[in-house]
Structure formats: C-alpha cells, structure tokens
Measured scan of single mutants.
Amino acid sequence: MTEYKLVVVGAGGVGKSALTIQLIQNHFVDEYDPTIEDSYRKQVVIDGETCLLDILDTAGQEEYSAMRDQYMRTGEGFLCVFAINNTKSFEDIHHYREQIKRVKDSEDVPMVLVGNKCDLPSRTVDTKQAQDLARSYGIPFIETSAKTRQGVDDAFYTLVREIRKHKEKMSKDGKKKKKKSKTKCVIM
C-alpha cells in the first residue's frame, strides 16, 4: 500500500485542523484551538488504489514558523489553505509557496490551493482571484467548507493525484537520464 505524506499549511484560523478532522473523523470542530502540530493517518481508496494518507496539520501562528522547514522537508505534497473571508490569509499563500519551493529546492512541488469556509456569506476573496492565482502557479484550486464537508475529500484526493503525477514524471525523467548515460565512448 502506497503511503502519501501530505502537509496542510496556511495562516492561523483558516480551518486547516477543521478540514483535516472532517476528512479523518467526519465531524466539524467549530471551536478554535490553535494547533502546534498534529499528525493523522487514514486509509482510503483513490482511483481504485488503496493508500495510506499521513497528514500533518501544522501551526499557522507566526511564533511556530521555525518548525516549518522541518515538516516541509518531509512532506510530499501540500494543501495551501486560505479562508475566503480573510484576504490576508490569501496573500500569505505566496509566502508559504515560496518557502516550500526553497526548502524542497524545487520549482515543481505537488500543491493544491484550497479556499476554505465557502459556506460563509462574508467572502472577501473572489473565486476568480483564487483561480487566477492557482493557474499562475500551475496547481489545482478547490473551494471547501469544513463545516458542510463540501470539497473536503476532493481537496485531499486531488493532492494525492498531483503527487502521483509528480512521481510518474520524475521516474520518466530518471529513465531518460539513465538511457543517456548508457551511451559509451570508444577510443581507438
């Protein structure tokens, strides 16, 4: 069974824990209790493949930012979460993405942009803004509501699919490099 290491990042209060708990335990946590770091595991079937999701729910508070490099190193894919009623959390996505790329030393890291709290009427981040940002990053965008469960499975499952595509691409690139290195030079 394939294991996928997913990391949920975003500013404090955007609903990272609520999304994760909704996926794992099928219930909505409405009281806000700032996370330092929590880890969850769940076995699911995605596109006919049974897999184990190892999900790291991270601290959004700035005082825990020193811990970010460590979990970013171990993560295979990242859910970059903002709240649709919090423009600052949307603007912060850029910083999370840049930090992930720096730590992973790669421009090509599996990510999904997630606009959470889409059940709320007080939207300050337009869907088109988020779609445009995701398009500019070359990553999928999904709106979710941890409260109603809308888009929750889709967000995590899409990230797994992005990781699969990335692994497939990397193995193809690896095979191309191996083929090239088999060419021999004969000096007579």
Rank of each mutant, 00 (worst) to 15 (best):
T2S: 12
T2P: 05
E3G: 13
K5P: 03
K5M: 00
L6W: 01
L6A: 01
G10H: 00
G10K: 00
G10F: 00
A11Y: 03
A11E: 04
G15D: 00
K16R: 11
K16H: 01
S17M: 00
A18E: 09
L19A: 11
Q22C: 02
Q22A: 03
L23K: 13
I24G: 15
Q25T: 04
N26P: 06
F28Q: 07
V29A: 11
Y32H: 12
Y32K: 09
D33N: 07
D33E: 13
P34T: 03
T35H: 07
E37L: 03
E37K: 12
D38E: 11
R41K: 11
I46E: 02
G48N: 07
G48V: 02
T50L: 03
L52A: 13
L53W: 06
D54Y: 05
D54S: 11
I55L: 06
I55E: 08
G60C: 07
E62F: 05
Y64D: 15
A66S: 12
M72G: 10
R73D: 12
T74M: 13
G75F: 09
E76L: 15
G77W: 00
G77T: 00
G77M: 07
G77H: 00
G77R: 00
F78R: 01
N86D: 15
N86V: 01
S89C: 02
D92T: 14
D92Q: 13
H94I: 02
I100L: 06
I100R: 00
K101Q: 12
K101L: 07
K101C: 06
K101D: 02
R102I: 04
R102K: 02
V103E: 02
V109A: 03
P110L: 01
M111A: 01
V112F: 02
L113C: 06
L113T: 01
V114E: 00
N116D: 02
L120W: 07
P121L: 10
T124H: 12
D126I: 07
T127E: 13
T127L: 14
Q129H: 13
Q129R: 12
Q131N: 06
A134Q: 02
A134R: 01
I139V: 11
F141N: 02
K147R: 15
R149A: 14
Q150E: 14
Q150C: 05
G151H: 04
D153A: 14
D153W: 12
D153F: 13
D154I: 08
D154L: 11
T158V: 04
L159E: 00
L159A: 06
L159Q: 00
V160M: 04
V160W: 03
V160R: 01
V160T: 04
E162Q: 11
R164Q: 08
K169E: 13
M170H: 11
S171W: 13
S171R: 15
K172I: 14
D173A: 05
G174A: 14
G174S: 14
K175Y: 12
K176F: 09
K178W: 08
K180G: 13
K180Q: 14
K180W: 05
K180C: 09
K180A: 11
T183H: 12
K184E: 15
V186C: 06
I187F: 13
M188S: 15
